[in-house]
Amino acid sequence: MSAALLIEQALNGLQFGVMLFLMAAGLTLIFGVMGLINLAHGSLYMVGAFACAAVATATGSFWLGLVASLVAAALAGAIMEIVVIRRLYRRDHLDQVLATFALILMFSEGTRWLFGSFPLYLDVPEILSGAVALPGGVQYPLYRLAIIVAGIGVAILLFLLIGRTRLGIQIRAGEADREMIAALGVDIKLLYTAVFALGAALAGFAGGLVGTIQSVQVGMGEPVLILAFVVIVIGGIGSIKGAFIGALLVGITDTLGRFLLPVFFGAFMNASDATAVGSALASMLIYILMALVLVVRPGGLYGAGT
């Protein structure tokens, strides 16, 4: 195993982590401000990917597609908030889980209705295609580097938005005390819709970005959603910083685990048993990580505690 391979795998873990952050940030924001658990967040990711693919195919421009993914997901999120989610804030988590579970069914089948059962085509733009040589003899796909940069950029913007702007102050106030911001004369309905749309846009953006290198198909959002749950549980629900650290931790653990565990078992087993055992264990690794974090800190790394 060479150093170059290890560096490449670490970058892969980072890229996966950054993508998870985009998903987890929206989830954790929505939970932090509105106290809502949204299972349909994965559907917004799917909406982003489909919008990106449809617009990119129609116009021939990936960049317009990416804009479309943001807009479509934000719009879908806003509509969803106004029509359904708004009625759920005062309900218990159980109702929220169920209603958003119902929304997943509707989004998935609705998308299939609109776009058919065949996966859509979406490709990396010319300017970002191919691989680049990094120091240390590492060849790395340019597009993945771009995802890392874009993801970190969004993370910085998000921190600035929350730390430095009026909206951010309202969001933080909302997290701390919901009655207080109403007393401050903030239009709470508007704020909630805005936060929800922001979270949706982040998920849609992730969907558009990742759809280019994965398969744009119905049901693509749910596996990512579950990973995003793991991320925010590890990071602490409601904490953007926790989501960021948790996402990187999960991304890197998963990528390196899948790569290193079979090698590790190969040291004392025959090759095909080692890959089987290693792969089986690797697929459980992040859940084991989550269990460990919970044993030490039940509220997650940056959570307020429960």
Binding site: A4, L5, F16, Q139, S215, R258, F259, S272, T275, A276
Partner: peptide, 21 residues
């Protein structure tokens, strides 16, 4: 090399890196 990936896996960066190496 011989690798078993996770069923339903969507990201193959790690496997592609191993192919390269």
């Amino acid at each position: 090399g011989e690798i078993y990936t996770q069923l339903g896996q969507t990201d193959y960066a790690a496997e592609i890196a191993q192919i390269r190496a």
